[in-house]
Design a protein around this nucleic acid. Structure first.
Length: 552
RNA sequence: GCACCGGUAGCUCAGCGGAUUAGAGCAUCUGUCUUCGGAACAGAGGGUCGGGGGUUCGAAUCCCUCCCGGUGCACCA
């Protein structure tokens, strides 16, 4: 529809003025019509006439069966109003399969085993899940993967404290830890280990030694010695804990890439390119980012060990090997933005395709409204469970009941409605507020529409013409869904859909306030609108990863 | 110092493929309706779109510059 009209207008310009402008159709305020174009303003200079004159001439020529009315406004805007049938057609358009046939790997969340999931993990999981949904909706085959450090100093710290608790290298004692408290126990151990590392020189040496042993478990395939048993068992506890958490928030991963697996291939790749891409400097192997307007980073340290940079190189190689992707989307906090730019620039030197196929999206921090600062040293970070708990509590206070779906909707919507990249000041009360722009509000809006439909007679034939103004307004809003969603998919910005869904719900409420649906002469038409509205809302919520329940 | 991100109503934020009167939610104030789930609707007040320059017929949106806040810049992840 859009394309047809665009072409029609372009042809008219060609005929009248002999020029073929880029016609852009925008969605103006409703009072102006369904579409608007500023071609007349664009053409003014080329044609040498004033915009309103040009618009006036075009007015007489633009003829399209879907366009009911054309008029001129302001400095020379051409506003188009569609016929009701055309508007209904727009509302039925499906999301373009722009990514059909593509294989896309989406990597997000990236928590470290042996550590606790914090608010940032919750945020990136919610965002990543929505974006993965988007890519799927556009026809891509999406693989959701996760990357985390199962080796490294943090593991040594946790292990050190675990050994204290277990009274030595006693894997049997692990059985005494309550199965439901495993993750919590490990998180506490991490905090104890971290503090010991900073305060106690002896402990620090022991932690460093443990860290080396952990690397050996991997290099030597040691799963049998007591210490190795502790490591492998608790490492699995971490992955179990992640799985449980992801299930709780309604997302999932098909693969975890542990750092221990990416280090080798990364190291080999970097070593291959010493000389042509990487250079030795002060005993380390670095990539000189300055040559590309970036900064220098170390890929292999002076002890010959791979740094995170190299593990990321290995990761991208492994993903390519496993999935042979057309595109790779990586979502992380924005503190990694410039770091990643260097890694990708380095990879570009020897595998330009890989860099070209990679999109790095970054997001901000989650802070609790009120601005309580937390010390990570004491482990007082804002954990993922804390966010869920304060949301559940706020919801309980507001509604007097527990509702996991509503809590999830509240959190997800609060995170997603803001443009990606900025920090989130999360206000639990506001997020569960059913009177405002919130997830539960949209869930309710959906449930309410479904309940009307549930009472409707089965067989009715709607007539979509001669719509009344309120009906038309709603239909017009429903019709924006596809293009908004396509834009959200293109920009990988969930916030576009959030803004739209809220406007859609408002549009419905306005309609519903003044128009009887059931037992009305216009029942058939209105029910069709209600259904279109409910389906659209559900479709949008589902893309965002928010459960669209029929009752609440 | 260099780089990246942000600075829009009291608060939290949309808008940033330039364009018809700068929007929303919350908060404040005022109305409506005996409501198919009122978790509604209508309306009011509240803005030098961080400052200053520039490009343009037209800038919150593009460019330059300055200020403020956050983050990142060699062997952590």
């Amino acid at each position: 529809m859009r394309e047809e009209i665009t072409t029609c207008i372009a042809d008219c310009c060609q005929k009248l003025f002999g020029v073929q402008p880029e016609v852009e159709l925008s969605r103006p305020d409703e009072q102006f019509g369904d579409y608007a174009t500023n071609v007349a303003l664009q053409l003014a200079k080329q044609v040498g006439k004033n915009p309103r004159e040009i618009a006036q001439e075009l007015l007489g020529v633009i003829k399209h069966p879907s366009v009911a009315k054309v008029d001129i406004a302001g400095p020379g805007f051409i506003n188009l109003t569609l016929t009701d049938t055309a508007l209904a057609q727009v509302a039925e358009q499906k999301i373009a399969q722009s990514l059909a046939g593509q294989v896309i790997v989406a990597e997000y969340s990236d928590p470290n085993p042996f550590k606790v999931l914090h608010a940032g993990h919750l945020y990136t999981s919610v965002v990543g899940d929505a974006i993965a949904n988007f890519l799927q909706a556009a026809g891509a085959t999406v693989h959701r993967v996760n990357f985390g450090g199962d080796v490294g100093l943090h593991v040594g710290k946790t292990m050190w404290a675990m050994l204290q608790q277990l009274g030595g290298e006693c894997p049997d004692k692990l059985a005494e830890i309550d199965a439901n408290k495993r993750a919590e126990w490990m998180a506490e151990c991490y905090v104890v280990g971290t503090n010991a590392y900073e305060d106690d020189e002896v402990a620090k040496q022991e932690i460093v030694a443990l860290n080396k042993k952990v690397y050996q478990f991997h290099s030597e395939g040691d799963t049998a010695t007591p210490l190795a048993q502790i490591y492998w068992t608790t490492r699995q506890w971490s992955y179990d804990y992640f799985d449980t958490f992801y299930k709780q928030i309604g997302t999932h991963f098909e693969k975890y890439y542990p750092e221990s697996q990416t280090a080798g291939i990364g190291l080999a790749t970097v070593k291959e390119h010493i000389g042509d891409v990487f250079v030795e400097s002060d005993g380390a192997v670095v990539f000189k980012g300055e040559d590309h307007g970036l900064h220098t980073r170390v890929f292999i340290n002076s002890e010959g060990l791979p740094t995170y940079e190299t593990k990321d190189v290995g990761l991208i190689m492994l993903k390519k090997k496993d999935y042979n992707f057309d595109r790779s989307v990586v979502i992380t906090g924005n503190e990694q933005e410039q770091y990643m730019a260097v890694v990708l620039k380095a990879i570009e030197q020897f595998e330009p395709e890989l860099t070209r196929a990679t999109t790095h999206l970054t997001h901000g921090l989650v802070k609790l409204a009120g601005g309580a600062k937390m010390s990570s040293r004491k482990g007082n970070i804002l954990r993922a469970v804390d966010v869920i708990e304060v949301a559940a509590e706020a919801n309980r206070e507001a509604t007097g009941q527990d509702n996991d779906d509503a809590v999830l909707a509240a959190i997800k919507y609060a995170f997603l409605k803001q443009r990606l990249g900025t920090d989130i000041i999360y206000d639990p009360k506001e997020s569960v507020n059913i009177l405002g722009n919130s997830g539960p509000y949209l869930q309710y809006a959906h449930a309410r529409a479904r309940s009307i439909l549930a009472k409707a007679p089965d067989t009715l034939t709607p007539e979509i013409n001669d719509l009344e103004p309120d009906e038309r307004s709603l239909l017009r809003k429903i019709g924006e869904y596809t293009e908004i969603t396509e834009r959200a998919i293109h920009d990988l910005l969930p916030s576009h859909i959030c803004t739209y869904l809220y406007e859609l719900a408002q549009s419905f409420n306005r309609f519903y306030e003044h128009n009887r649906v059931l037992d009305d002469p216009r029942e058939a038409t209105r029910l069709a609108l209600v259904e279109g509205y409910a389906d659209t809302l559900k479709s949008g919520l589902t893309l965002l990863g928010i459960p669209a329940v029929d009752r609440m």
